[in-house]
Amino acid sequence: MVLGQPPYFGLDLNTPLPLSEELTKRLRMADESGYDLFSVMDHPYAGDRHEAYAALGYALGHTRRISGYVGVTNLPLRPAPVLARTVAALSALSGGRFVLGLGSGGIWDRIAQFGAQRLSPGDAVTAFEEAITLIGKLTGGGAAPVTFDGRFYQVTKAMPAPVPTPKIWTGANGPRALAITGRLTDGWIPSFGADWLSERYRTSRPLVDRAAQEAGRHPSDVISYFNFGGALVDHDLPATRDAEGRWQGGSTRQWIEELTGAVLEHGAGGFNTQVANAAGEADLDTARRFADEVIPAVRAAVTAH
C-alpha cells in the first residue's frame, strides 16, 4: 500500500549476514501490524551485512502492505542514472511501496575503499542536488527523452521510466543540503539521531522551511522523519530523557505522550523506531508490543485533536 498521511511509524531492520529467521519474523510482524515502513542501512563496505538494495528488494517481495526505504542511500557508491532505474523497478514491482532515502555521503574513508572519488563537502552537495533532479527526470513517465549535462552526471536522450517519482527523503546536514531538501524533496531525516527537542533540529529545520517557502511550497510539504529509539518498559520511568536531553524510553503511557506531543506540538511527520526491552534488546516481542500498544494510541490521539 502506498503511504497515506503522516505520522508514519517505521521499524528499523537489522540485516546482518546470514539472513536470519528472526529478520523474516520481524518483516512478517511489521507487515501485519501498525508499522508503515521498514528501513535498512546502506553501508556496502561492511562485509558482514546484506547489501541494502538487495535486502530491500527481498523485503518488499516478502511483504504485501508495508513500504520500505534505504535510510539513507549512499549516493557516491550508486550512480544516479542507474539508481533511478533501480528506484523505478522497486516502485513498480512493489505497487509503489517505496520511499527513496538519499544522502550525499558521510564516511569518505570507507567510501574510498570501494574506489569512489573522494569529494569535497561542497562538491558532494552539488552531486547530491544533481542526483535528485536527475532521478526526478528519469521517473514520472514523461514522453520526452532526457538529456542532462551536470558537473557529475551526464545523460543523453534517455527515456524516463513510466513510473511515478517516489517520495524522496534526505539525510541532509548543512545549510546547502538542507535548502535543497526544502526546495526539491518530500522529507528530512535529521542526522545523528537528533529529535524535535535537540539543538540540531531547532537550528536546521528553519533552513528547510525557508527554502520550501522560497520555492513556493508549504513547509509541511517536507516532513521531519526521526530516527528514534529507546526502551519500552512496564512502569513509568522517573526520567524519560538523560542529562543531555536524549530520549531513553519509558512506559507505554510515556511513549504515547512523547510521540503525540512530537506530532501535535513540533510537527513530527514520523518515527523510524528501534525499541528495546528493559534489558536493552531490540527483540521481536518488544517491536510487536510497540505496534500493538503505542502506534494505535498515538494515531487516535492525533486524529482526535
Results as ranks from 00 to 15, higher is better:
P164S: 02
G68F: 14
R26P: 00
I168M: 11
G136E: 05
S91R: 07
T260K: 03
D209W: 15
H218D: 15
A46D: 14
G96I: 15
L13W: 02
Q113L: 09
G122Y: 01
L102I: 13
A239C: 00
A211S: 12
L23W: 08
F9D: 03
A112T: 07
R288W: 11
R217S: 10
G57Q: 12
G115S: 03
A300V: 12
M41L: 13
G141V: 02
G115R: 05
R183E: 12
D236S: 08
A215D: 11
R110L: 08
S191T: 12
G250R: 01
A179W: 07
A144T: 07
R118E: 08
G261T: 05
G187W: 14
S94M: 09
Y8T: 02
R183S: 08
G47T: 10
K25I: 01
R288K: 13
G261L: 07
R246F: 11
N173F: 12
D221V: 04
M29G: 08
I66H: 13
A158L: 01
F226D: 12
A54P: 00
D48S: 14
M1A: 14
A243T: 10
D123K: 06
A59G: 15
V222W: 13
R78I: 09
T185G: 09
Y69L: 15
R151A: 08
F228G: 09
T260A: 00
T286W: 06
L232M: 05
S104P: 00
T273W: 01
G193E: 10
G71D: 12
Q154V: 07
G57N: 14
K167L: 15
A54D: 01
G95M: 13
I168P: 11
G261C: 05
L90D: 10
R299V: 13
A89F: 03
N272Y: 04
T139C: 04
P121I: 09
Q213M: 15
D31W: 10
G174I: 07
V163A: 01
L178K: 06
S251C: 11
N277P: 04
L178G: 05
I132Y: 00
V146S: 00
N272S: 10
Q5S: 13
G115P: 05
V155N: 01
K137P: 01
A124H: 02
P160Q: 02
D234C: 03
L75P: 12
L75Q: 15
E129K: 10
